[in-house]
């Protein structure tokens, strides 16, 4: 359901060129969204149609996250990496942390956030949900979640679990 609505709206957004949208474009958008949804369901059989992804509170939370903590983290990450590029002060290593997430969407959101924030890069995720993270300056060989990515684990849990 989520995929259907998002692909429908995205097509209309990209096809809009000032003024009203003709009816034929809406029909094409409906057909294309149906094709995408059917293809997705044939890859992931047995998934129920759910409307969890359409909850407006989640969407507001997502945009709040994108323009609030995430933007600040992105800016800090880039200044940090820029300093390291210039000075060459690195102490790399791969550390392990388990945030205890079960949902695939939450894992993806957290992994992408980790990759774009200070000095960390997700390398692998195993079956138990442990993240293996490449850290450009290892401060602690057994780090806590707070040290690695601050409040992002809390946000991922709130938005997608």
């Amino acid at each position: 359901m989520f995929i259907f609505v998002v692909s429908f709206l995205m097509y209309l957004l990209l096809v809009w060129s000032g003024g009203a949208i003709p009816l034929i474009e809406v029909l094409i958008a409906l057909i294309l969204a149906s094709v995408v949804t059917v293809a997705f369901r044939s890859w992931h059989r047995g998934r129920k149609i759910s409307t969890r992804g359409l909850d407006p509170k989640r969407w507001f939370g997502f945009f709040h996250y994108l323009f609030g903590p995430f933007a600040v983290g992105l800016a800090k990450a880039n200044i940090d990496v820029a300093k390291r590029v210039i000075t060459g002060n690195i102490r790399p290593g791969i550390v392990k942390v388990n945030p205890g997430l079960t949902n695939d969407v939450a894992k993806t959101l957290l992994a992408d956030s980790i990759t774009l924030t200070p000095g960390t890069l997700t390398v692998d995720i195993d079956e138990e949900g442990s993240f293996y993270i490449h850290w450009i300056y290892v401060e602690d060989e057994n780090p806590t979640e707070e040290q690695l990515y601050g409040s992002f684990g809390h946000w991922a849990r709130r938005l997608a679990e």
């Binding site: 790399p92 290593g93 791969i94 990759t115």
Partner: peptide, 26 residues
Amino acid sequence: ATGAHAIARAAHRSGTLPARAVVDRL
């Protein structure tokens, strides 16, 4: 972000170890 994650995982699985690493849990 997703492409960087894919390249890092592939590099580790193909046997490239991080240079000058102090710890490598994977």
